[in-house]
Design a protein around this nucleic acid. Structure first.
Length: 409
DNA sequence: TCTGGGGTCCTAGGACCC
DNA sequence: TCTGGGGTCCTAGGACCC
């Protein structure tokens, strides 16, 4: 039996992933301060190149702040297809070294090489091979952290950034943790950092030595985990098989704050369609509908309710969202709307019993097919287009040449 | 022209049931 | 005529992550 502390885990983290991919794709951007942003009018910086970070440009900044920090910043609209394509290629590279690969996010992965590292000349040699392969295939850099568990591998990759490779062995863990600020740990954010500071705990060393009773009384069940984290202990394994999703949702900050009912409905329909289509594509059905609203003053809240049956039908999601909306007295203009579907199960693919329902499902499948091939909202319900025009709203992806009408019979 | 979008997990309180 | 307690489901909000 293998001790959990003696595992060998690699954390592979792309350096400024979206920005690096854009710089590789467009030579004129190389060596320049760039910021990758969304397409909306009120977007923020998603990723800043290292050249831009030198000027203080950070993820989450709005355009205005970013430009103030770095006037020559070049803004590039995100190209998600490029990033997902690259991500798939990365997965292929990782799988050469171990079957235990967890794609944690689009730019981060964990590899458990405990059983295979000896076949490739050891953990560091695997790290070097991966860095080389990624550079050759995609022209981008990454950082590799190697450690006895996921928490430490992630920590070490953060420390070694950018373009780094570092291996922390079990005997080095204590020394590394002693003076490390607790905020550096994965799972400790601003709030917990603040609450720990009140207790006089600032470093991981202090956290690891703090009395269990104190931590338990302040943080409940999470107190034990915190103490273990302070000592660099983590029992979470690399999960090669993705877990089933718990929720599927979409939200959008609107081009401008709105209050008008027809406009709200048009956006809710659009979001419901995005949610329904994704659920159908991935074979999920859900029972809980969640509506999220953010007012102009940024106050954000949600309302949810359970349906009688599981669904992934756009119209059911939309009707659920409208019912929730009807229960809210809007006190201000709306800045953001979100719709999500949770309490998910796998769609059993049962043939609907009722003929009319069967026809509608066939139409949904046809719409999904066309939308997948030609992009979102090229094809949509006639009622939605009518609604959109009526409300005078042009959605970002709405193109006159792409609009076709659909006949439901 | 101030502040994106996609998630997960946990907690607390109320409803409801036995 | 005063009154328990446990368990589960549901909702709303918050912390955290990329």
């Amino acid at each position: 039996m293998v001790n959990i502390m003696s595992r060998i885990i690699l954390c592979i983290d792309m350096d400024a992933f979206f920005a690096s991919v854009e710089q590789k794709a467009n030579p004129r951007l190389r060596g320049k301060a760039i910021g990758v942003i969304g397409s909306g009018a009120r977007t923020v910086i998603t990723t800043a190149s290292y050249e831009a970070r030198k000027f203080g440009v950070k993820t989450g900044m709005n355009i205005w702040e970013a430009k103030k920090a770095c006037p020559h910043l070049i803004l590039v609209i995100a190209n998600n297809a490029r990033y997902t394509h690259t991500c798939k290629g990365l997965e292929e590279i990782y799988s050469r070294f171990t079957p235990d690969v967890e794609i944690y996010s689009i730019d981060e992965a964990f590899l458990d090489v405990t059983a295979t590292h000896h076949l490739f000349g050891g953990p560091e040699e695997i790290g070097r091979s991966i860095k080389r392969s990624i550079k050759e295939a995609f022209g981008i850099n990454c950082t590799v952290g190697i450690a006895p568990n996921i928490l430490l591998a992630k920590l070490v990759s953060d420390i070694a950034k950018p373009d780094g490779l570092r291996w922390i062995k079990p005997e080095d863990v204590e020394g590394l943790m002693e003076d490390l600020p607790v905020k550096e740990l994965w799972g400790i954010g601003a709030k917990i950092t603040e609450r720990l500071a009140v207790l006089g705990i600032r470093t991981c060393g202090e956290l690891g030595r703090a009395p269990s009773s104190l931590l338990r009384s302040k943080f409940g069940i999470y107190g034990e985990t915190l103490k273990a984290m302070g000592k660099g202990i983590c029992s979470r394994h690399v999960q090669a098989k993705p877990e089933d999703a718990r929720s599927i949702g979409h939200s959008m900050t609107l081009p401008r704050d709105i209050r008008e009912r027809k406009e709200i409905e048009a956006y809710l329909f659009k979001l419901s369609e995005m949610v329904g289509r994704r659920a159908r594509k991935h074979g999920y059905m859900g029972k809980t509908i969640v509506l999220v609203i953010r007012y102009a003053d940024f106050e954000t809240f949600s309302r949810q309710s359970m349906l009688l049956d599981f669904t992934n039908d756009t119209h059911d999601v939309y009707e659920g969202a409208i019912t929730l909306l009807n229960g809210i007295h809007l006190k201000d203009k709306i800045r953001l709307l979100g719709v999500s579907l949770s309490t998910l199960i796998h769609d059993p693919h049962q043939l609907p019993l009722i003929e009319e329902e069967r026809k509608r499902k066939a139409v949904l499948r046809a719409m999904d097919y066309v939308n997948d091939r030609y992009g979102e909202f090229k094809l949509t319900w006639g009622s939605y287009i009518a609604r959109e025009r009526e409300a005078g709203v042009i959605s970002p992806s709405w193109k006159p040449s792409g609009v076709k009408s659909v006949h439901l019979k």
